[in-house]
Design a protein around this nucleic acid. Structure first.
Lengths: 208, 208, 208, 208
DNA sequence: GATGAATGAGAATTCATTCAT
DNA sequence: GATGAATGAATTCTCATTCAT
């Protein structure tokens, strides 16, 4: 990996190019979920995507850039899913929203677990990536507060930051160590309870 | 990496050998903390440790085994630190204990961050390692509960699992995205507050 | 070729290592003289040297460095040959020295032509290399002047610079375009005549 | 590079096509003079020329052919410049002609140095190219002799060959190692002196 | 005439590991 | 116990060239 430009080499101008790009992304994802133990390699990605290795490097100047692009894509997708489930649960009230968010956090780990693990490991430390994740979580939190009718401005930055992350950390730990916990209603209930407790606290006590 | 015996080749009894081992561990750790972006390789470790690559392979049959041993060592050290700070704060009561644990969680990330990240990435999926981490956190939680005089048996496994992890996740996220938050008293207070709230809840509400 | 450190990775400490190094150098040279049309590649060099590709990279961090080391070695060898032939011809007087130098310039092109061409093309522009060549030619010129009993200090830098190069340029051109000229006594005589004329001029006319 | 027809695929008759060709040539030249260290590649040439890679391959069946065409073009241009400066200086006599030729040799190296180096390296060994260069220098020499009123037929092939080359070699060496020498009047004078000395010798001594 | 996406053989380089000394 | 030279399979990446549109 010689150079490391921030972004892709080419923005596709022909329609087939967009298809190729998607093929590459999906192939990369599938390799992980298929449980290949060996670490990703560009030849495998290309082969699995049904394109030549040259094509892969036509779009991405190096492996890092491909992984970075995938990470940003996963982050966007996850944000969209959170926003969607919040919107769907909103009419049913605060409790429903909390539960929806918790479930969404627990759900996708079955099926997208490996890609994310790997991506976060490989490019998670890159500023572009973790800042993008940070921004996405901020937007989700804002959206969530709005859905449960809490004015975001009364929430201190620290609480804002904690709200989702106090839940996401344990979920990830469970996925790794005690996968069966992800299927346990008791665990889900506990997370929802704490989540709602946080939301309630946001209103009763004035932010510092 | 052809073979992968569970443990180290030799348990050195001579002090010189123990010194060599420690050198190797510390060299590996320093490579990360020095911010080397390039991925670790065994030759680099050996050179940095001031031993020959042959010596490294005399002690460890392969790279995995070295990394695994390091991971287990880090886990043990972290457990010891938690236990120590709990013991120290115990006489001052529940609040002090909570704050001590939060501070310990926030502190070491400055200085040992990279090694851990890398180790967890490389060998974190190995059962020996994540089970060891799981067990260590369990012991710390038990110790903590005992220190604040809560009977562990009345605590549901889910709550037991959540207690520390609801705090560790956000702390890691902060270290990555908003490092200045780790120095913010507001953030620390928030974590302590939620932590104490959890402890209190453990007593008032009976587990499911 | 990622990085480009000035020099070799390792200085051999074991005796077999020096042998390996020589093998690599000679193999590289032989590949050219064998008339392989395709440009040099590191795998071929290793194979021809009878070492593995890993060994080659154990000594040289990259291809550039190998070529640079070879270029410097060729320059040193050529200098040595010039100095030797000057010393040998010295007792026979100015004319003999001039002819010896001209012959030496014409001779090695049969047998070492291709390596040099390639090396000068590949690394000739690198400061280390062309400065080394410059210095070598300076030393040869000084030695030559001394051999014909001309005090170097009375020679202007411009004339000093021209003395050998006015001959080397045409020799190279002939080697490329009219190889049979290198075997022609008339050509040799012409070069010797001009060379002696230059030497004579150095004494009669005071330097500017 | 599979096939290698001697010449260009199409002799463009439309002015647009000629423009495209010139763009390609100039782009290639500029890549070098801009000091790009990375070796030339056809995609870069096309991009820099503002044409698609497909267009480049419409005009040239392969890379060799493009480079060869460029080399022949450079040679022609340089010949034209020499002939022009000889013609211009002719009325002012032998000394003026000699100085004009020396200056022309020194001048263009600032600005066209890299392209020529590269071209001579890449295609300089091809018979078409070096014979073309040889012929061009022959014509310039003939023209020069005529301008100073020396009958070419009395000049031996060896002296004919040496006349210009004894000057061109040192000029190139100076450009590489001691660029400031190219601006030094002393160096220019020295070259002119030797050049005139050669011309004079051509008349006084009968060729062998 | 022109485009640019796609190809794939081939080249450079890495690094875990072995083994003679 | 210790050394470090040597290995080579595996991986990343390049670039001349083709061809459907």
């Amino acid at each position: 990996m010689r150079k490391d430009p921030e972004s892709m080499r080419k923005s596709p101008r022909q329609s087939r190019a967009q298809q190729t790009l998607d093929d590459i992304f999906e192939a990369t994802a599938r390799i992980f979920e298929a449980g290949t133990p060996a670490p990703l390699n560009t030849n495998k990605v290309a082969e699995r995507a049904g394109v030549s290795i040259g094509t892969l490097y036509y779009y991405f100047p190096n492996k890092q850039t491909l992984l970075r692009a995938m990470a940003l894509r996963e982050i966007k997708r996850q944000e969209a899913r959170f926003l969607a489930c919040i919107a769907a649960a909103r009419p049913e009230g605060r409790y429903a929203v909390a539960r929806a968010v918790v479930r969404e956090a627990m759900a996708p780990l079955n099926g997208r677990k490996e890609v994310r693990r790997y991506l976060m490991v490989q490019v998670g430390l890159e500023p572009v990536v973790h800042q993008s994740l940070y921004a996405a979580l901020n937007r989700v939190t804002d959206n969530l507060l709005e859905a449960v009718e809490i004015d975001p401005v009364i929430v201190s930055p620290e609480r804002h930051f904690l709200l989702l992350r106090a839940m996401l950390g344990p979920v990830r730990a469970a996925a790794l160590n005690v996968p069966q916990m992800l299927a346990s209603p008791a665990f889900e209930n506990e997370l929802v309870t704490q989540f709602v407790a946080q939301l309630t606290a946001l209103q009763s006590e004035p932010p510092r």
